[in-house]
């Protein structure tokens, strides 16, 4: 009898696990691609993560924690197998290099305000590809925290557990990651010249690209 009960429990767990994995597959793949910056590596990482998660399933405390738990496995697998050793510089010992960069403060310029809403314009003009490239340019440790917290919406605690660091480190890495990310977005937009408005003298000549 006990064996039957165990087998049934297992089967329930198994099909529950399969359902969860199926449901989260696009998220896991999305996270894996952003971490690896490569589709093939991303696929391998997801497959390895699923295999490891299956083995570790008895250690999952509550089903509600599944998402954070499987992303922890994905992150650990990435760190141990895919992250180049060169990339693991001790970023936390570096002091924040000067002031944090604020995209808002750069976009939100009084001279532009009467002309429209530069912040909205900037955000509306941001393409998925712009964001992907900006994230890809982050150093490994900072990219990891952005992928976990900003892309995959893990809590600070879940991200801390996933990366094996204190919550304070998650906070400081996040701040630095976002500062760098915003600077990249700004620099790229600036280089492309598409989201920076013309100088005031040029502006009068081009009144009609609103709406």
């Amino acid at each position: 009898m006990a064996d039957v009960a165990t087998a049934q429990m297992n089967r329930t767990d198994q099909s529950w696990f399969a359902d969860q994995v199926a449901k989260l597959l696009p998220d896991l793949y999305g996270g894996a691609i952003r971490l690896c910056r490569d589709r093939t590596d991303g696929e391998d990482l997801v497959a390895e993560t699923v295999a490891k998660a299956w083995e570790a399933l008895p250690g999952l405390r509550t089903r509600d924690a599944f998402r954070g738990w499987i992303f922890r496995i994905l992150t650990n697998t990435y760190i141990s197998q895919y992250r180049s050793s060169r990339a693991q510089g001790d970023v936390d010992s570096l002091d924040a290099d000067g002031e944090a960069f604020s995209l808002f403060e750069h976009v939100h310029q009084p001279i532009l305000l009467w002309w429209g809403n530069p912040e909205q314009d900037f955000l509306n003009g941001l393409l998925r590809e712009d964001l992907v490239q900006a994230i890809d340019q982050l150093p490994d440790t900072l990219r990891t925290v952005v992928v976990l917290v900003d892309v995959q919406a893990l809590s600070y605690r879940e991200a801390a557990v996933a990366m094996g660091v204190p919550i304070g480190t998650v906070r400081s890495r996040l701040a630095r990651a976002r500062s760098q990310l915003q600077k990249t977005l700004w620099d790229d937009a600036h280089d492309a010249g598409i989201r920076t408005r013309q100088s005031p003298s040029q502006r009068e000549e081009k009144p009609d690209d609103r709406d």
Binding site: F17, A18, V21, A22, L25, P26, D27, Y29, G30, G31, I33, R34, R39, G42, E43, V46, A47, V50, A51, W54, L103, L123, L126, R128, L131, V132, I135, V146, D150, V151, Q152, A153, Q182
Partner: peptide
């Protein structure tokens, strides 16, 4: 901006990967 970044969460899963995971399971 945060919402735009969160929009990257999911990536269409290629059939080979679906198949691979399915086989594993």
């Amino acid at each position: 901006l945060k919402a735009s970044i969160a929009g990257l969460a999911q990536e269409p899963v290629p059939p080979e990967l679906s198949q691979r995971v399915h086989t594993l399971l």
